[in-house]
Simulated scan of single mutants.
Amino acid sequence: MNKKVVCLVFGIFLSLVSFFSFDNYVKADIDGLTVTPLIGDSDVTDRFQIIGDSNLERTLQISLSNFGIRKLRLEVVPTNATTSMDGKIVYTDDVKAGQYGLKYAFSDMVKPQRVTLGPNKTKDLKFKVKLPSKKINGLVLGGFSIRSLDSAVSGTADVPVWLTDDNKPVGGILSLHNLSLDVIDKKPHIIVNLQNKEPGMMKNVIVHVTVKRKSWLDRFNLGPKTMSADLTYPKVAPNSRIPVDFDQNTTPIQAGKYVVKGAARSGKATWTFHKTYTITQDQANDINKRCKGLIYNKTTTYILIVCVLVSLIFLIFWAIWHSGRS
């Protein structure tokens, strides 16, 4: 074999080895994009860590590389971590201060940026982070969410930013936040939102929740069935909601009072929940009209028809009996 060919193959092999061994980049779902936090001298390579230094300004750098064949239009948005339905830490929501007890929003400390990357191009972005003037209690789990501005390109990438004054671990406390409705893949969903209002990361949170719509048919054991969910969340972000999803599939949302009960456990700590929520007819109609393939339950209608027929038969027999006595 030609020596030049051997050298070329060997060089490509070394390049591939060095590329896959370089582990301080962040996994990106946007095709062709590689995101690298330029952290510098630190053992932690997948996120930024800011400890102490309240009321100061810090500069963070992120390198974006486009190895794809198309131009990328991106926006880097500062936000806070939230907890997904499958128990992952995500940065998909635009979180504001005050939500779920959050004292400091990362979006108030740094401005977003937009960038256009051509194929095989790299750009380094600098972000000036203005830290709060007061001490940060616990952990503020911020992050940069890299999002595509092109509708033809989907996906996101995240770079976490941990902010704390003392780096001491803080636990979490779970409570019931609310009951909400949503449409996902053109199907109605009832979502029970728990919340961690403390500035501490939680791990291995086990949750059991039931939802039951009240109905007069319950006395005949013909009412709606109790829905239940048993889930484990590997991680729960500080000051975030914990969504428990009840997929209704083809069952439309019905107005009425819904009783939510449940319990959660993390380590030795346990919490219980019990509250009644009301879904109005307008809320139910708004969700149902945005869904496809719904199958409506006719049980109540059939029972009413039977009751009307029985009443009519009773009245007819009563009229016959009464006329016979006259």
Rank of each mutant, 00 (worst) to 15 (best):
G40F: 10
A105R: 00
Y100L: 01
K111N: 12
I50L: 05
P234I: 14
I242V: 14
G52W: 05
E198S: 07
N55S: 11
V183S: 02
T79H: 02
L8Q: 14
I242L: 11
E75D: 14
F246G: 11
G143I: 10
N204V: 15
H322L: 04
A28R: 00
T276P: 07
K88C: 12
D185P: 02
A284G: 12
L312C: 10
L163M: 14
T278R: 00
T164H: 08
V161Q: 01
I69Y: 08
Y100V: 03
H177R: 00
T156V: 12
K4P: 13
A229H: 13
A28N: 02
F48W: 05
V115H: 02
V153K: 01
K203G: 08
L14G: 04
V153Y: 04
V76I: 12
L176G: 03
R114T: 14
S145T: 05
F220E: 10
Y104P: 00
G155R: 01
L312Y: 06
L139Y: 03
E57H: 01
T278L: 07
E198N: 09
S15N: 14
L217N: 06
D86E: 15
P169F: 07
I313M: 08
P224A: 06
K135C: 05
S63R: 04
L60Q: 01
P238T: 12
V77M: 15
F314L: 09
A28I: 05
M227V: 07
L304Q: 10
I184R: 01
S15L: 15
G101E: 13
T250I: 06
H177S: 05
R241E: 11
R219L: 04
D23P: 07
V170M: 09
E198C: 01
T280R: 00
K130W: 06
D230E: 15
K4C: 14
N288G: 10
D165F: 01
L102S: 03
S148Y: 04
L117N: 12
Y25A: 09
F22Q: 12
N193Q: 03
I313R: 01
K275P: 08
A237P: 06
D158C: 03
S323T: 13
N24D: 15
N137P: 05
N285Q: 08
D93C: 00
A229D: 15
V236N: 07
S323Q: 08
I206K: 07
Y258T: 00
F48V: 12
L194D: 15
F10I: 09
S42A: 15
S215D: 14
S151G: 11
F144R: 01
M202C: 07
A237Q: 05
G40C: 11
D41K: 02
Q281D: 14
Y25H: 11
D108Q: 10
P199Y: 00
I253P: 06
R265V: 10
K103P: 00
P238S: 10
K268T: 13
P160C: 08
G101A: 06
K197P: 03
